[in-house]
Computed example of a mutant assay.
Amino acid sequence: MKLWRVVAGVLAVGFIAAGVTPAWACACGGYLPDAQSRARAYGENALVQHDGGTEKITLSMAINGISKKAAWIMPVPAAAKVELGDDQLFYRLDRLTRPKIVYKKTYWPFRDLGIMRNSRGLAGEAAPGSGVNVRQQMVLGPFAVARLTGSTGTAVTDWLRTNGYVVPATLAANLTPYLTEKWEIVAVKLAPKRDGESLSGATPPLRLTFASQRIVYPMRLSKGATTSQTVTVYVAAEHRVDATKLPDASVKPELLFAGRVEDAALTTPANFLTAYTATYSEPGRITDDFTFAPSATDAEYQRVEVVTTNDGFWSTVGVLFGGLLLIGVGAAVIARVLVRRSRLS
């Protein structure tokens, strides 16, 4: 499958056509399929790496369906370098942060009675157009990339429309807080080599590198989402991190993993990986970005999954027979002792 076929599903900055309401992806950007498709983004994975004053965000979205047009917008706090990421990155991170499996045995008489039943997730202990400055335009693999700054959300969305992005009605308002804070906007759209081809599935990762004194993962654009979204954020830094600001204060992210790991993408000493996941069933409640700060300690954490196996009927019979035999032997010994004592007395 061609690389850009896999990507189309991730990127879409919008469309308003024939009254169709677009669906936004969670976290930094928005996925909006073309009007003829029913593709939707339902989640994303992101690796946030912070070392000194430099941050890297590598992002991949999960797409359900097929889209012939795709685009994506990501705000970042400073000028960004944009590159393609490692296709195998999130596969490796998933393996590194999986739960530890603990096996326990049960026996036939107690099977399905709730006794010794397994527990899951037990703890083991986050240009053209007035008012727009186009800093860079380039073609990167299957993507056409533009780096922009703008005076207003309307100025930026007007530029996007003029340059082939079909923009949802809510985008200008959702961009305004970032533009007020002088953030840069990275706009990405699919640049297929042949007409009529489409994309689906997980998108190839894109990596953005920029200056930042704090660890931040932009989320405020996601308030335009119309469906439930799940985001998993892996933070690689010198120490374990806590989520100090949440996109929606009522949604507490689940800690998946914390510990030092070895991976080609992570350099020492910024190889302490902390992983969080969160699901936003009401994206409209999102009002802030994720920010992370060092934890008080580098305490490691790994989930534990207990898997119960059953040894079956004959193993159970053997266990029961052995138990009865031991009881019988014990009873015989006690009887002999009592008889001996009665004779002596």
Score class of each variant (00 low, 15 high):
residue 183 W to D: 08
residue 132 V to T: 05
residue 163 N to S: 05
residue 10 V to F: 10
residue 200 S to A: 10
residue 284 G to R: 15
residue 117 R to F: 07
residue 42 Y to E: 08
residue 126 A to P: 07
residue 262 E to C: 00
residue 149 T to Q: 06
residue 208 L to P: 02
residue 183 W to N: 07
residue 205 P to S: 13
residue 143 F to G: 01
residue 164 G to W: 11
residue 170 T to Y: 13
residue 296 A to E: 09
residue 220 R to S: 04
residue 14 G to D: 04
residue 228 S to M: 02
residue 234 Y to T: 02
residue 43 G to K: 05
residue 66 I to E: 09
residue 118 N to S: 04
residue 219 M to A: 14
residue 173 A to T: 06
residue 236 A to M: 08
residue 104 K to I: 01
residue 179 L to R: 04
residue 54 T to L: 14
residue 167 V to A: 02
residue 231 V to I: 12
residue 88 Q to N: 15
residue 158 D to L: 00
residue 54 T to M: 11
residue 129 G to T: 13
residue 168 P to I: 08
residue 20 V to R: 11
residue 148 L to Y: 00
residue 52 G to C: 03
residue 39 A to D: 06
residue 42 Y to Q: 09
residue 132 V to C: 05
residue 291 T to G: 12
residue 58 T to P: 08
residue 21 T to N: 11
residue 257 F to M: 07
residue 183 W to P: 05
residue 302 Q to V: 09
residue 145 V to G: 02
residue 45 N to M: 13
residue 180 T to V: 14
residue 125 E to I: 04
residue 210 F to E: 06
residue 85 G to Y: 06
residue 293 A to E: 12
residue 306 V to Q: 12
residue 18 A to V: 12
residue 281 S to M: 14
residue 31 Y to N: 03
residue 90 F to R: 07
residue 190 L to W: 14
residue 290 F to T: 00
residue 104 K to H: 08
residue 33 P to Y: 06
residue 303 R to L: 11
residue 8 A to T: 04
residue 307 V to L: 04
residue 174 N to A: 11
residue 338 L to G: 09
residue 260 R to K: 10
residue 171 L to E: 11
residue 56 K to A: 04
residue 128 P to I: 03
residue 271 N to W: 09
residue 333 V to L: 14
residue 68 K to A: 04
residue 234 Y to Q: 03
residue 144 A to Y: 03
residue 12 A to S: 13
residue 73 I to T: 08
residue 157 T to D: 10
residue 339 V to N: 00
residue 265 A to D: 14
residue 216 V to T: 05
residue 106 T to L: 09
residue 70 A to C: 13
residue 289 D to G: 13
residue 139 V to F: 12
residue 174 N to H: 12
residue 74 M to D: 12
residue 151 S to W: 02
residue 234 Y to E: 06
residue 152 T to M: 05
residue 189 K to G: 02
residue 164 G to M: 10
residue 173 A to G: 08
residue 311 D to V: 00
residue 199 L to P: 02
residue 345 S to R: 01
residue 89 L to T: 01
residue 227 T to A: 07
residue 50 H to T: 03
residue 344 L to N: 15
